[in-house]
């Protein structure tokens, strides 16, 4: 039996707690299984010879080769990566800063501002897409990367803000006090004391922002031009003639790349230690 992942300081715990730990670990594994179930299926089909994702036939690498040869698809993946990265960075800056300021100071109209932050989350994508398109057209701003990124930041930074705010609730104000007393400037206190404390929430927020941006279709459609078309736009287009396993192959490549990145970054960290 594997050791439970939960390994918080434990000294003289009754056996009931150990049971709880094992149950928790088992449940987590089960939920992970649920999350990865369709991923396993789609990776399996990426090696399938049939053009349609219906029956498993024989094994082939052909779809991987097709991905490699499909210039527009690769360019779209590249665009998506760029757009998602930039909007994640901007969302984290806006969201973390906003959450901290709203927590730290009692602004007049803070409640209305808070409500305003939540509006992009509820705003149907089609409304955001069309209204931003009208705005950009009226302002004479061309469509393309900048417009897409503006749209993406608008719907993803609230997610960062809400996640960070949850972490800030109940934060001991003495922490910042102490830093200020020790001669730190407010900025130093924020960067050196508060941000490290908020790190888990910032990471969580960044992951959400990246994911939202990476897979967004409708706001992107209304703000993009030919050069900045993203992966979802191409994928939805391809659905019309049938999603072929090429897209599964692309997903598989992406998952492997992510896994490699995670392992590699850990390895780098170990080296630097």
């Amino acid at each position: 039996m594997p050791a439970p992942l939960t390994a918080a300081p434990r000294r003289r715990f009754p056996s009931g707690i150990r049971l709880v730990d094992y149950t928790l670990t088992g449940w987590t594994a089960l939920v992970m299984g649920f999350l990865y179930l369709p991923i396993i299926v789609l990776v399996a089909y990426s090696f399938n010879r049939s053009r349609l994702n219906i029956v498993l036939e024989s094994f082939t690498f052909a779809w991987y080769q097709r991905v490699w040869e499909n210039g527009p698809l690769l360019r779209a993946a590249q665009n998506s990566l760029l757009i998602a990265t930039v909007s994640t960075v901007l969302s984290v800056l806006l969201g973390t800063g906003g959450a901290w300021l709203l927590h730290r100071y009692r602004y007049r109209g803070a409640r209305s501002l808070q409500t305003l932050v939540a509006v992009p989350m509820v705003m149907p994508e089609i409304l955001m897409g069309i209204s931003l398109l009208i705005l950009f057209a009226t302002a004479g701003m061309g469509l393309g990367f900048t417009a897409v990124i503006i749209g993406h930041v608008t719907f993803s930074f609230p997610f960062v803000l809400v996640a960070v705010q949850a972490r800030l609730k109940g934060l001991d104000p003495a922490m910042e006090e102490a830093a200020l007393d020790l001669g730190a400037t407010p900025l130093q206190a924020f960067m050196l004391v508060i941000v490290p404390c908020l790190r888990p929430a910032i990471v969580a927020g960044a992951l959400m922002a990246f994911t939202l941006s990476w897979d967004e279709l409708i706001v992107t459609f209304f703000t993009t031009n030919a050069a900045s078309a993203t992966l979802p736009i191409r994928v939805f287009g391809m659905a019309k003639v049938g999603l072929n396993p090429m897209l599964n192959a692309l997903s598989a490549i992406f998952i492997v790349a992510t896994a490699a990145f995670v392992l590699f970054s850990n390895y780098l960290k170990k080296l630097s230690r």
Partner: peptide, 22 residues
């Protein structure tokens, strides 16, 4: 945490079609 999020880095449509297959 990353493990929780990674499945969502494949396109929504492809994930959904995988669910349909299931």
């Amino acid at each position: 945490l990353l493990l929780v999020m990674v499945p969502f880095w494949t396109s929504f449509l492809i994930r959904t079609y995988a669910w349909i297959t299931i």
